[in-house]
Simulated scan of single mutants.
Amino acid sequence: MHCQTCGDVASPVDPDCQRCGTPFGQPPVLPGLPTYPVRGLGTAAAVAVGAATVLYLPGALFPLVGTRMARAAAEQGDRDLLMGAAVAELLLGLPYLLALLTAAVLVIIWTWRARKNIDAFPGALPSLGPGWAIAGWLVPFANFVVPARVVANIARDSLLRRTTPALVGVWWAAWLVFSVGDRLVSRGDDKRYSRLTEWPQNDVEYDSYVRYYQDALGGRLLLSVACLVAGISFVVLIRRVSAAQQDRLARAVPAWPGHPGWTGPAAPVAPASVGPVPAAPAPVAPVPAASAPDPAPPAPAGAGPDAPSVTSPPPPPGPGGTIGA
Rank of each mutant, 00 (worst) to 15 (best):
D14W: 13
L223H: 10
P31S: 08
L30N: 05
I108A: 04
G324S: 13
V170M: 04
A250V: 03
A173W: 14
D78E: 13
E205H: 10
A252N: 01
S309K: 12
D190I: 05
G320H: 15
A148G: 05
F24R: 13
A226F: 04
V105Q: 08
L222H: 11
M69R: 04
D189G: 11
P286F: 10
D247W: 11
P278L: 06
V274D: 01
P316V: 15
V49F: 01
P317N: 14
P297E: 09
V29P: 02
A250D: 10
C227M: 15
L128K: 08
P265C: 03
R192V: 10
P37M: 05
T22S: 07
L237F: 01
D16N: 14
R68I: 12
S233Q: 09
E75P: 00
C227F: 10
R220S: 06
V107D: 04
G129I: 03
P265N: 11
A166Q: 06
A51I: 01
V229E: 02
A282T: 14
S224L: 11
A166L: 09
G84T: 07
S179E: 05
G21M: 03
P316K: 12
P122S: 04
F144D: 01
N153C: 02
T111K: 09
G77W: 05
T111L: 07
D207F: 13
A250L: 09
P95N: 08
V54C: 03
A303G: 06
S186M: 07
V277I: 07
S186I: 02
G320K: 11
R240T: 12
G123S: 00
G7K: 03
I134K: 10
W171K: 00
V65K: 06
A266V: 08
G302N: 03
V210W: 11
F178H: 13
T311G: 15
P130R: 03
R211Q: 14
A51N: 02
V168L: 01
P130W: 02
V180T: 00
S208P: 09
G21D: 01
S312A: 15
L57P: 04
P28V: 02
P254I: 12
L92T: 00
